[in-house]
């Protein structure tokens, strides 16, 4: 049966560990995903070509071609299918590099299947856009504010604004999802990346830093009981 006609979203699961891949495939099928499996990067690329999955789960450490390389090749080829990367090392650097390589989300091993399913649903809910989505773009511009992800710098009216790494991460995350409310939990998870969250107030401290350093401009709105939202529209450059 051709996958395109399936009402359930198609997921490509790429991991060289049979026990993990098999276990996840069963759990994802129960959660009404149509599951394709690949053992390595080469197989993964062939399956993407043949079946155009809706979302990809990609382990990093694999023989033949690792997850990073798969991600890089897909993005270079203009394929923006959402990717969840299964990182092996949780150091912030590792996470940043997976995001730089174009993964939409990452998950640390060990995780349980419910965690993964929740992430996948969140990714699939995001409205599909043609071309590179804002959360993967390198340069984001909103009025007088300009953010460059690779250089980790922010300019307001052309003036360089020094932000701490975490404050930069929060601003980049919110700008990449302009208009959407992002919860403190999501920010902690995506920007901090520690398994044991540092606490909600930690997020507020960084929001306060961004507001203080960007002056009186109301770029970020507090949505009581929900989280934060970047208000103005954001343009993607590069």
């Amino acid at each position: 049966m051709p996958e395109q006609t399936q009402p359930d979203p198609t997921i490509l699961l790429v991991d060289d560990e049979d026990a993990i891949r098999g276990g996840l495939a069963a759990a994802l099928s129960r959660a009404r995903f149509h599951v394709l499996e690949a053992r390595n990067g080469q197989e993964a690329l062939k399956l993407v070509e043949a079946h155009s999955p809706d979302v990809i789960v990609l382990d990093i450490m694999m023989p033949e071609m690792d997850g990073r390389e798969v991600c890089r090749r897909l993005r270079q080829g203009g394929n923006w299918t959402p990717i969840v990367m299964l990182t092996q090392i949780s150091a912030t650097g590792e996470k940043i590099s997976s995001l730089e390589e174009g993964a939409d989300d990452y998950l640390n091993k060990p995780f349980d299947s419910y965690e993964l399913i929740a992430r996948l649903r969140a990714l699939l809910r995001r409205q599909a856009v043609a071309g590179k989505p804002a959360h993967l773009a390198n340069v984001l511009v909103s009025g007088r504010l300009r953010l460059e992800r690779s250089a980790q710098r922010v300019w307001l009216d052309g003036k360089d604004i020094p932000l701490s790494n975490k404050a930069f991460g929060v601003l980049a995350h919110l700008m990449g999802r302009a208009g959407a409310v992002v919860s403190r939990e999501q920010l902690l998870d995506q920007v901090w990346g520690w398994d044991d969250p540092a606490g909600m107030r930690t997020v507020d401290v960084r929001i306060a830093e961004i507001r203080r350093k960007l002056g009186d401009h109301d770029f970020i709105e507090t949505v009581p009981g929900e989280g934060y939202r970047f208000l103005d529209p954001v343009k993607v450059e590069g």
Binding site: E17, A19, I20, G23, L24, A26, A27, R30, Q88, K109, P110, F111, D112, S113, Y114
Partner: peptide, 20 residues
């Protein structure tokens, strides 16, 4: 840590399957 991660992920995931 590295060597524990993959077996633990498999255990967690298979436990979810077992529970189902």
């Amino acid at each position: 840590d590295h060597e524990l991660k993959n077996p633990l992920t498999a255990i967690q995931v298979q436990l979810d399957n077992l529970q189902a």
